[in-house]
Amino acid sequence: MSGNSLRRVRVAEVEAVANRIKRFRLVDIDNAPLSEFSGGSHISVVMHAGSRLMRNPYSLMGSPKDTSSYQISVLNVEPSRGGSKFMHESVKVGSELEIGQPLNLFPPAKLAKKHVFVAGGIGITPFMAMMDELDALHADFELHYGVRSLKDGAYCKYLQSRYGSRVNVYRQDLGQLIPLKTVLRGQLLGTHMYVCGPKPMIDWALQTAKLLGWPDENVHSEQFSAPPPGKPFVVKLARSGREIVVSGHQSILEALEENGVDAPFLCRGGACGQCETAVLSCDGFIEHNDHFLTEPEKAEGKKIMICMSRIQSASITLDL
């Protein structure tokens, strides 16, 4: 059972909402209702960029109650692997795309007494749906949102007008930083913190919470990074005996798909664990780029998440 059933959507609206960030509104190709979803969910968007097939995960940022359309925001990453560049340059109003069903790997904790959201840049998107959902439930939450400048930060005005003093925006161009220690120190027991943004920010927030004695269960993070590029290598499939070349800008999963090999996957961001594959042998170092395997598992080198990770050597043999 690999992957996620796809549905065709049409782009109904494209808006430049900040420097290098565009918002896309997607509707079903026949205008049928889309699935409801829960705050924190993402979808994967399938992109046929020339001869390349890519699927990137994007958080759903619209209201979960709105089944007429889904909204995503895409940052044009520099240097891009191709996905965000394709979305920015080739996808227009009326373009057709394929998307997977919503999947939630970043849900708000339903038993939390309060929710503290810490966002950096494009990391704001999952929190927009979560806040919409929690607001309807009259739940207690606050947002701490770090942006480079008001031109770079999307939705600052919208969020402030909708949620008022629950939204705190910090502008790097004014030297403002999220005062995370103060924010976390002042919270009641039973508060949960969620962080989404660039990797250094996530690491900093998790570390700060840990040092302040926050329990691991109350701290949540999500980061969808594209599979990092590297040098080409060869994947040997033990069961079929095939050998497949993974190019420098491809993930193992993408190379398998390009060659018609059906491998399991879901989130394609190294978070869900679905594409975990047994490593039978590897002649060098595995570069684990996922957030799923534990550190001891990564060190052991017996498993690899093929959506994100690659190797720094010539070949790896997988149980596929």
Binding site: N4, S5, S35, F37, Q101, P102, L103, L266, C272, G273, Q274
Partner: peptide
Amino acid sequence: LKFLLNLQIGK
């Protein structure tokens, strides 16, 4: 459990 945690909408 691992399988169910990734159970998908509509599947």
